[in-house]
Computed example of a mutant assay.
Amino acid sequence: MILRVRRLWDSITEPRHMKAAYFVLYTVLTGTGIATLLVPPTSIAGELGQPLSVAWSVFWILGGFGGMLTVFPGWWWAERLSIVLMWAGFAIYGLVVFSLHFTSSGSRLTQFGVIVFASGVGYIRWLQIRKYSFEPRGT
């Protein structure tokens, strides 16, 4: 079993630890999208309707799942598309949260800050992979 795990780990091109970290983050985003689709946050969905919750959750599912599929093989053009889908979900959710900050009771700035932070993580990945369509391979 340990040999299989080691072979699998060795089959990932460098930087392995970064790809594994992004894979985990894309998995979390996919799970968050599924959870939001199945059980939308009532404080937000109730205020602005179900369609917006469905929209941002679908973007997260597509972006997260696409990122999971593309991060290890180095299909950067497709991973960038996944990041754009992820950003679309964050943009919708961020606009909803930001508008609710001014139209409902309580502060939504913490939520908004976390959304901006998560979008920034995607931006860092975008910067890492922006130059090529596929990951350059050593010969």
Results as ranks from 00 to 15, higher is better:
138 G>T: 14
44 I>T: 04
19 K>A: 07
32 T>M: 14
111 Q>A: 15
72 F>N: 01
30 T>C: 07
120 G>E: 02
50 Q>H: 13
19 K>Q: 05
127 L>I: 08
53 S>H: 03
117 F>W: 15
118 A>H: 03
32 T>N: 14
118 A>F: 11
34 I>S: 11
49 G>I: 04
48 L>E: 03
115 I>F: 09
132 Y>T: 09
38 L>N: 03
81 L>K: 11
132 Y>C: 02
101 H>R: 10
74 G>M: 00
138 G>V: 14
5 V>Y: 14
88 A>T: 06
112 F>Y: 15
113 G>F: 14
86 M>L: 14
90 F>Q: 04
7 R>L: 08
129 I>F: 05
19 K>T: 02
10 D>L: 04
6 R>G: 04
58 V>N: 07
105 S>Q: 13
26 Y>E: 11
17 H>Y: 13
67 G>M: 01
77 W>F: 02
95 L>Y: 13
123 Y>T: 15
137 R>K: 12
128 Q>I: 12
111 Q>H: 11
130 R>M: 10
85 L>T: 02
37 L>S: 06
7 R>H: 13
64 G>P: 05
119 S>C: 11
38 L>A: 09
78 A>H: 03
58 V>A: 13
95 L>H: 12
44 I>A: 05
106 G>V: 11
105 S>Y: 13
137 R>D: 02
40 P>A: 03
68 M>R: 09
29 L>Y: 04
94 G>K: 07
20 A>S: 05
92 I>R: 02
56 W>I: 06
98 F>L: 15
117 F>H: 12
75 W>P: 05
118 A>I: 13
88 A>V: 09
21 A>P: 01
119 S>L: 11
33 G>L: 04
101 H>N: 15
137 R>L: 07
136 P>I: 08
110 T>P: 07
94 G>E: 11
7 R>G: 02
138 G>M: 14
96 V>K: 04
22 Y>E: 08
13 T>G: 07
47 E>I: 10
32 T>Q: 13
115 I>C: 09
96 V>F: 09
23 F>W: 12
80 R>I: 04
5 V>S: 05
51 P>W: 08
86 M>A: 14
97 V>H: 10
61 I>Y: 03
55 A>H: 00
125 R>M: 03
80 R>K: 14
92 I>N: 08
71 V>Q: 03
129 I>M: 01
136 P>Y: 01
4 R>S: 10
127 L>C: 11
48 L>S: 10
133 S>D: 08
103 T>S: 03
111 Q>C: 01
134 F>E: 05
45 A>K: 01
129 I>K: 05
64 G>K: 02
112 F>K: 10
63 G>K: 06
42 T>E: 04
16 R>W: 06
1 M>C: 12
